[in-house]
Amino acid sequence: MSHDRSKPDRGRVELNSEECKGCGLCVEACPPKVLRLAGHLNRYGYHPVTCFTHGCTGCGICFFVCPEPGAIIVLRATALEAETLYA
C-alpha cells in the first residue's frame, strides 16, 4: 500500500500487549494492514498484536473486531491539525 511517510498518520493505536490474546482478528480486519502479531510471546504465552508500520487511519475497525474490552485504544489526529496536515 502506498503511503507518504513524510506526513503524520491520521490515526494511532495503543495496544495493550498483556490483555491481547493474539487471536489475530484485528490483523485480518485492519484496512491499511498496519498490524501484525509479534514474534515474541507475552507473559501469558500469546503473540500479541503490534503496529509495525505507518498508515493507521484511526478507523476503529480493529477496536470492534477485538474481543477484549480494553486491549486496543484508537486515537485520531485532532481535526484542526488534520486539516492543516492534509490541506
Binding site: 503524520p8 498518520d9 484511526g58 476503529g60 477496536f63 474490552p69 480494553g70 486515537l75 485520531r76 485532532t78
Partner: peptide, 15 residues
C-alpha cells in the same frame, strides 16, 4: 508534531 484524541477505548460500562 500531530496531537491525537481518543476515538475508541474501553467502555465506561466495564469495570
Amino acid at each position: 508534531m500531530a496531537s491525537y484524541t481518543v476515538a475508541y477505548e474501553k467502555s465506561k460500562s466495564f469495570f
